[in-house]
């Protein structure tokens, strides 16, 4: 099963829409509640990262009998130092984004804590790809 969602950078009014669709799909498939909860946390944080940092992006969701795979591809500034970005509390978010309660440097660690597999590839000046895999 394959689904795709387009994400527009900077449009916070739509942030979380793709993640809510992912949640609905997993619920309809009767995926275990604990797995849905972890998937939703990881998907939302990764979706918000595109909205907060990138110009635009595509989220793809692929589900088979064994796994749930979410790939988030964005065109954006990229991440210079992924290890540093993974540190809890580190953030490059703007003041505006922080005032909304985002950008506390907790997003990537939330993803890491909840995903069964996490891969991040990034090219400065081009964009970032985040791959999240959950085992069913």
């Amino acid at each position: 099963m394959h689904h795709e969602y387009n994400i527009v950078g900077g449009d916070f009014t739509r942030a979380g829409y793709a993640s809510s669709q992912v949640k609905k799909i997993l619920r309809n498939l009767d995926v275990d509640t604990a797995i849905i909860k972890r998937t939703v946390i990881a998907a939302y944080e990764a979706e918000v990262n595109i909205v907060a940092h990138a110009y635009n992006g595509i989220i793809t969701l692929d589900i088979d009998a064994d796994s749930i795979r979410i790939v988030l591809d964005d065109m954006g500034p990229g991440i210079e130092d992924i290890e540093q970005a993974m540190q809890e509390g580190y953030s490059t978010a703007s003041d505006k984004v922080r005032e909304m309660g985002f950008g506390a440097g907790m997003g990537l660690s939330n993803i890491k804590r909840n995903a069964d597999e996490l891969r991040i590839n990034s090219e400065v000046g081009r964009g970032t790809q985040v791959e999240i895999v959950m085992y069913r």
Binding site: F12, T13, A15, G16, Y17, S19, S20, K23, V40, Y44, M100, G101, F102
Partner: peptide, 12 residues
């Protein structure tokens, strides 16, 4: 916090 993302989180 009063903006719309609060409801996205409450719902998720």
């Amino acid at each position: 916090q009063t903006h719309k993302n609060v409801m996205a989180i409450a719902s998720l």
